[in-house]
Simulated assay, not measured.
Amino acid sequence: MIAKFIDLHIHSYYSDDGEFSPADLVRMCHDRGITTMAIADHNSIKAVDEARKEAYKYHIQYINAIEVDCTYRGINLHVLGYGIDYRKNVFYDLEENILRQERSCSTKKLELTNNLGFDIQKEQLDGLSRSGIYTGEMFAEILLNDSRYKKHELLRPYRSGGNRSDNPYVNFYWDFYAQGKPNYTEIIYPSLEKAVNLITENGGVSVLAHPGNNLKGKFELLDEMIASGLQGVEAFSNYHDENTVEYFLQKSRENNLLVTCGSDFHGKTKPAIKLGETMCMIDECEIQNDLVKRGLI
Rank of each mutant, 00 (worst) to 15 (best):
R130A: 08
L222F: 04
P182G: 14
H152D: 14
I188M: 06
I199T: 02
R156H: 05
R159S: 00
H152E: 06
Y189H: 15
Y177F: 15
H152K: 13
N202T: 08
K194P: 00
G162K: 14
E201V: 03
S206Q: 00
E137Y: 02
G162P: 12
L215H: 04
K194N: 15
R156C: 11
Q124K: 08
N171Q: 03
V233K: 10
Q124P: 09
A140W: 01
Q124H: 04
L215Q: 10
V196W: 07
L154V: 08
I142E: 04
I226T: 03
P182W: 09
L155S: 06
D223K: 08
K218L: 03
P168F: 08
A227P: 02
K181G: 09
T200L: 08
V196E: 10
N183A: 07
D223T: 14
N167I: 00
G161M: 12
I187N: 14
K218Y: 05
L143T: 05
T200N: 14
F139H: 10
Y134T: 09
L125D: 09
S237M: 01
S191H: 00
L125G: 03
P211W: 14
N202V: 11
G229F: 06
E153W: 08
T200K: 14
F139S: 08
Y134D: 12
L192E: 01
N167D: 07
L155M: 05
R156E: 13
D223M: 09
Y239P: 01
N197M: 05
L222N: 04
Y177K: 00
E123A: 06
E186H: 14
F172R: 07
A195I: 03
L198I: 00
F172H: 00
L154P: 01
S160N: 11
E234V: 02
A209R: 05
P168L: 06
N171P: 01
R130W: 00
S160K: 15
R164D: 04
R156W: 01
F236L: 04
M138T: 04
I142S: 10
M138E: 06
H152F: 07
K216F: 00
E193K: 11
L155T: 09
G162N: 03
F176W: 13
L230G: 05
I188C: 07
A209S: 07
K181V: 00
L230Q: 05
L155F: 12
N202F: 05
K216Q: 08
K218N: 10
P157S: 11
K122P: 03
M138A: 12
E123M: 04
L125A: 15
N145S: 09
V207K: 14
Y239E: 11
I199S: 15
A195R: 11
M225E: 06
S129D: 04
S165N: 03
Y184S: 09
A178Y: 15
L230K: 14
Y239H: 15
E224P: 03
Y177S: 11
L222H: 10
K151V: 11
D175G: 01
I142Q: 09
A178G: 10
E224A: 07
E234M: 01
E137F: 00
F139L: 07
E186Y: 09
D223N: 13
L221D: 13
L230R: 03
N171A: 11
L192I: 08
V205M: 04
Y134E: 05
H152M: 04
D175W: 03
R159V: 09
E224H: 10
N213Y: 15
G161P: 15
S147C: 02
R156S: 02
N238K: 00
E201C: 13
G180H: 07
A235M: 02
E224M: 11
